[in-house]
């Protein structure tokens, strides 16, 4: 699942959620990834929460026109109304993070309004040994530590019927040092949700390790945008390691 991080209508990629580099036009990227055999796409408006803007609906519309796979949109989706606008623009699913953490009832409302299959909850995490699971929830694009245990929060999200949880490792983001496997494993064991591995993919082996840890969807950005790994190559590799893939 290639993830298009968006800022001012362009695809960008940061390291540890900051230090942003330009990576292209979103529609061109989406088309290229569909052609290359991506199974899903994610579009994340990385600055929406921080700057208090809504997600760029016109970009969502244009990307929807260009894609032939399901795509999830996140960033700045704070309530049912903003989620409804993004879905109406053509997104298949929405992802919410900071707003969901601040007001968990937003999750319940979205599940009721759109059905659970439309809702993904993203959880930005970083290691913190003071937490029971060793991981703390971050919000506002990784800028605000919450003091809440990440696995406990995942359990609560699961209890609302959310079928997909997307933990992104702050340490791993853009660093290409591998997914944060313990947090994937812990969330997989603690919930009934599908876990999306996100943050840190840099080598083919990293994708395989995430599947072994229990992830069912593998999200990456840098390695795809900067042509370090292409999707057919990745699929061949994972098949070669005995995984049942598309």
């Amino acid at each position: 699942m290639p993830c298009l991080d968006m800022q001012n209508g362009r695809v960008v990629k940061g390291v540890h959620f900051i230090d942003i580099r330009d990576a292209g036009d979103p529609v061109e990227c989406a088309q290229a990834y569909c052609k290359a055999g991506a199974d899903e796409l994610a579009l994340l408006d990385i600055t929406a929460t921080v700057e208090g803007r809504g997600t760029m609906l016109d970009v969502v519309k244009r990307v929807a026109e260009a894609t032939t796979v399901p795509f999830t949109v996140g960033g700045g989706i704070s309530d049912v109304a903003s989620a409804a606008a993004v879905l109406a623009a053509g997104a298949d699913k929405i992802s919410t993070s900071s707003a969901a953490f601040r007001q968990p009832e937003v999750i319940t409302e979205m599940v009721k309004e759109f059905g659970p299959e439309k809702v993904t909850v993203a959880i930005d995490v970083d290691q913190n040994q003071a937490m029971p699971s060793g991981y703390e929830v971050y919000i506002d694009g990784g800028r605000t530590a919450t003091g809440a245990d990440a696995v406990e929060w995942a359990k609560k999200v699961d209890s609302f019927g959310v079928p997909v949880i997307l933990p992104t490792s702050k340490a791993g983001d853009g660093a290409k040092t591998g997914y944060d496997l313990p947090v994937i494993r812990a969330m997989k064991d603690a919930t009934a949700a599908q876990i999306v591995a996100s943050g840190g993919a840099g080598k083919l082996e990293h994708f395989y390790e995430a599947v072994e840890a229990g992830a069912t969807v593998l999200l990456a950005a840098s390695v795809f945008h900067f042509q370090m790994i292409d999707i057919p190559e990745l699929k061949d590799y994972l098949r070669g390691r005995g995984l049942d893939l598309l």
């Binding site: 199974d39 079928p163 009934a192 969807v217």
Partner: peptide, 11 residues
């Protein structure tokens, strides 16, 4: 069984 999440979602 609980190892299968519902909705059935994906490829």
């Amino acid at each position: 069984p609980s190892e299968y999440s519902v909705p059935h979602m994906g490829w």
